[in-house]
């Protein structure tokens, strides 16, 4: 495979239905995935706020962590945005947390992560928008595509909530519309 078919970082955004979708997507990733996987999942005011890391760690074949600010983005780790903070990537591939105003009524916001990651990884970025009941992620995905990144959207038919994938498709379009299994395959292929 040539370089054009490869990605060196993965960002994923989801909201309503996200926990279930993430468990199935992460569960299908290869254990030796080379790329870092950076996730924003909007969280309700319920318990899954605290337990999301554990719930995802049960499913994923690699470590799942909430990144410390200033720490390095690490390969073969799922980095989950902590509740109440925007998660951004700095040019030196370290994490930055901010408490700037909510974006799309959300903090963390998918757009914030995607836009900052797009600026750093450009055509080496793979971004996926999954299930959700709001429009967050659409503008971010557009930024990813504008920098030549690879954009995937979960098929609205499969998504538990189809608004987020539909908004992403309408605003940004995608390189492929896939099921969760298809998205996992694509990530496995592109991040050997």
């Amino acid at each position: 495979m040539n370089d054009r078919g490869r990605s060196s970082a993965v960002v994923i955004g989801c909201s309503t239905g996200g926990l279930k979708a993430l468990r199935s997507l992460l569960g299908a990733l290869r254990a030796d995935l080379a790329a870092p996987v950076i996730v924003v999942c909007h969280r309700g005011s319920t318990d899954d706020r605290e337990h999301l890391v554990e719930l995802l760690a049960q499913a994923a074949p690699m470590p799942v962590q909430e990144p410390d600010e200033r720490s390095r983005v690490r390969p073969n780790v799922v980095h989950l945005a902590p509740s109440g903070y925007h998660l951004l990537i700095e040019a030196d591939e370290t994490f930055m947390l901010s408490v700037d105003a909510r974006v799309n009524f959300s903090r963390p916001a998918i757009d914030v992560l995607f836009e900052s990651a797009a600026a750093v990884y450009r055509e080496r970025l793979l971004a996926a928008v999954l299930t959700g009941a709001n429009d967050d992620g659409a503008i971010g995905l557009k930024a990813v595509r504008a920098r030549g990144g690879h954009a995937l959207v979960q098929s609205p038919e499969e998504a538990e909530a189809d608004r987020m994938p539909r908004a992403a498709l309408q605003v940004a379009g995608a390189d492929a519309v896939l099921t969760l299994a298809g998205i996992a395959d694509r990530i496995n292929q592109r991040c050997p």
Binding site: L88, I89, E90, A91, M96, S98, D100, S116, A119
Partner: peptide, 9 residues
């Protein structure tokens, strides 16, 4: 100031 968020602002 860290650039990623400064840029947004």
């Amino acid at each position: 100031y860290a650039r990623a968020s400064l840029k947004r602002r």
